[in-house]
Amino acid sequence: MDLTELITIDPSVRGGKPCIRGTRITVYDILEYMAGGMSDAEVLSDFPSLTAEHLRAVLVFAAQRERRLAASAPHEIAA
């Protein structure tokens, strides 16, 4: 999946936060809705300009960012 086709980072849009291309909807907004319990269908209903591919791109983007952060700053996991 080529994330640059679906997610952009533009300093003039939403303070440079990663957004769904062509919208002002941030990756973080979508992640918060999903983490809050909204289903994919509910998110797509609330944001008709989004597709299921956008939602997958948000998850891939977040996973890749988390991997980069974990690799750059090792941390302990509490047992």
Rank of each mutant, 00 (worst) to 15 (best):
M38R: 00
A52I: 03
T51H: 01
A70R: 13
E5R: 10
D40C: 07
E32I: 03
D29I: 05
D46I: 10
A62M: 00
P48Y: 03
Y28R: 12
D46V: 09
S39G: 12
V27Q: 04
A63P: 00
A71M: 09
E42Q: 15
D40W: 08
A52S: 04
A41F: 12
H54R: 01
R56T: 14
R56D: 12
A78G: 06
P18Q: 00
I30D: 01
F47H: 07
F61W: 03
I25G: 02
G16M: 00
V60F: 06
D40R: 00
V13A: 09
H54S: 01
S12V: 13
G36N: 05
T8G: 14
S12Q: 13
V13S: 09
L55H: 03
H75W: 13
K17I: 05
Y33T: 11
T23L: 09
M1A: 08
D10L: 01
A63Y: 06
L69H: 10
A70K: 14
V27G: 04
E32R: 04
I77A: 03
E66P: 04
I77C: 03
A70D: 08
R68V: 11
S39N: 15
L50A: 03
F61D: 14
E5L: 13
R24D: 12
A35N: 12
V60P: 01
L55E: 05
L69Q: 15
P48L: 06
I9R: 12
G15F: 04
G37N: 03
H75G: 15
A70I: 05
V43A: 05
E42G: 04
L69T: 10
E53P: 04
E5S: 04
S12D: 15
G15L: 02
P74G: 12
C19V: 08
E42T: 12
S45Y: 09
H54E: 01
V43T: 01
A57Y: 00
L55M: 04
A79S: 10
S49P: 06
E53K: 07
E42D: 09
L59Y: 03
P74Y: 05
A63H: 07
T4Q: 00
G15H: 06
M34I: 15
P74M: 02
K17T: 11
S12M: 07
L6I: 02
A41N: 05
I30Q: 00
D29K: 14
T8S: 14
E76T: 14
A62C: 06
A70E: 13
G16S: 00
V60K: 11
E5F: 04
F61P: 01
Y28H: 07
I20L: 08
R21K: 12
A79C: 00
P18S: 07
A73M: 15
V27M: 01
A78T: 15
L6C: 06
D40H: 13
H75K: 11
I25L: 13
P18A: 05
G16E: 02
P48H: 09
R14T: 10
G22V: 10
G37Y: 07
R14S: 14
A41E: 15
M1G: 13
L44D: 10
P18N: 02
L59S: 07
S39I: 08
V13D: 02
T8K: 14
R67K: 05
A70C: 10
L44T: 07
Q64R: 11
T8V: 05
P48M: 01
L3P: 00
L50E: 00
K17P: 15
